[in-house]
Amino acid sequence: MKETPIIAAGLHDTRSLAQRIRGQALRMVTRAKASHIGSALSIADIVAVLYGRALRVSPAAPRHPERDRFILSKGHACVAIYAALAETGFIDGSLLETYGADGSMLMAHISHKVPGAEFSTGALGHGLPFGTGKAMAAKLRGESWRTVVLTSDGEWGEGSNWEAALFAAHHGLDNLVCIIDYNKLQSLKSVDETLRLEPLHSKFEAFGWAVREVDGHDHEALTKLLEGSPWEAGKPMMLIAHTIKGKGVSFMENKVEWHYRNPTPELLDAALAEIEGACGNA
């Protein structure tokens, strides 16, 4: 019988990984003339910490039964995940060049047909209920893997998320981590102007979750919170990650328009220069 590979967290340099994720994401959306680059740059550091350090996953066994399950609920930011999967060996890097092309496996919302991706999303408010089901399954069977769901902030307008938030707390799913990419910008305006979420921290505490806030671009802080065991026994974990939409490219940061626009070749060069320069200075 073939030996099952040992499942362990990665040991990547997460800053360098984040830089490569940003670069690949920018290239993909430019080539495909696709949207949502701001949303992908917003989560690049979180994704780098997850795939580089925190998740126990293995490209040699993408369906390993003991792997951590990661679900991208904000499926429109999929280029960040496709890039991470390519950079950590789950998929061939050349596949990224097909992103959004006719017949490509890499559609412009995350697809479960891509090795390493657990679940297709694109409609918001689906990732957390699904992840809650996975966490429940692990609990019922006494298995030790974790489920990590990454949501946007705007998608907390969906009632299904609040249903899942009630359920996860009621059932004490301390093997479930939900990260909110709290960049405070939605599709048209800010979260505050659209459908206010504040006070978010105390809301989730009142729902019975263990809640932590973090700078979503601080790799050390993210690593510390996302590695290892439950923060509080019997409570699901809610990580409110304060982020900047478009992070890393000065002319995209905090700009609603980069939810939709795709860069011209000139703007791509300028963006790549900023990202590569920033890493060199780090």
Partner: peptide, 15 residues
């Protein structure tokens, strides 16, 4: 909470 019930069911079914 039928939306969560169904998403939850899908999550468990995937396991």
């Amino acid at each position: 909470a039928e939306q969560n019930m169904t998403g939850l069911a899908a999550g468990m079914a995937s396991e």
